[in-house]
Amino acid sequence: MDLHQLQVSYQAEEDRLLFRASFKAEDGTLQELRAWITRRLLRVLWPAILQTLETQVRLDKPQAAHASADIVGMDHHASIEHIRDTGNFDTYYETEISHFPLGEAPLLITSVNFAQHADQPVRINFSPADSGGFELSFTLVMLHGFCSLIREAANMAEWDIALEMPGALGATAAGLHLLN
Rank of each mutant, 00 (worst) to 15 (best):
M1W: 04
M1A: 15
D2P: 10
L3G: 06
H4S: 13
H4I: 07
L6T: 04
V8T: 12
V8N: 04
Y10W: 09
Y10V: 00
E13N: 07
E13H: 11
E14G: 01
E14Y: 04
A21E: 01
S22M: 08
F23K: 15
K24D: 09
K24Q: 14
E26R: 12
E26T: 13
D27N: 15
D27E: 13
D27M: 09
G28K: 13
Q31K: 15
Q31I: 03
Q31P: 03
E32G: 08
I37W: 05
I37D: 01
T38G: 11
R39I: 03
R39V: 01
R40S: 12
L42H: 05
R43F: 00
R43A: 06
V44M: 07
P47M: 05
P47A: 04
Q51Y: 12
T52A: 14
Q56V: 03
L59S: 05
D60W: 02
K61C: 11
K61M: 13
P62Y: 06
A65V: 02
A65D: 05
H66N: 06
S68G: 00
S68L: 08
S68N: 11
S68R: 14
I71Q: 03
I71W: 09
H76Y: 12
A78N: 12
I80M: 03
E81K: 13
E81Y: 06
H82Q: 11
R84F: 02
R84D: 08
D85E: 11
T86F: 00
T86P: 02
T86Y: 03
G87D: 09
Y92H: 12
E94V: 10
T95V: 08
E96K: 13
H99D: 15
F100I: 08
F100V: 07
G103R: 03
G103S: 07
A105Q: 15
V112L: 10
V112E: 04
Q116Y: 06
H117G: 09
A118G: 10
A118L: 01
D119C: 08
Q120E: 13
P121N: 10
P121T: 11
V122I: 14
R123V: 13
S127A: 13
P128L: 09
D130A: 14
D130P: 02
D130T: 14
G133T: 13
E135H: 03
T139W: 00
L140A: 07
L140D: 09
V141R: 07
L143K: 02
H144L: 00
H144E: 01
G145S: 07
G145T: 05
C147R: 06
S148F: 12
S148I: 03
S148V: 02
I150S: 11
R151E: 00
E152R: 14
E152M: 04
E152C: 02
A153M: 09
A154G: 01
A154I: 05
N155Q: 11
M156R: 08
M156S: 05
A157I: 08
A157G: 04
A157W: 13
E158A: 10
W159N: 05
I161D: 06
I161S: 08
L163Y: 06
E164Q: 01
P166I: 01
G167P: 00
A168T: 04
L169D: 03
G170E: 01
G170S: 02
T172R: 07
T172Y: 06
A173E: 10
A173N: 02
A174R: 04
G175C: 02
L176H: 11
H177W: 04
L178G: 11
L179M: 08
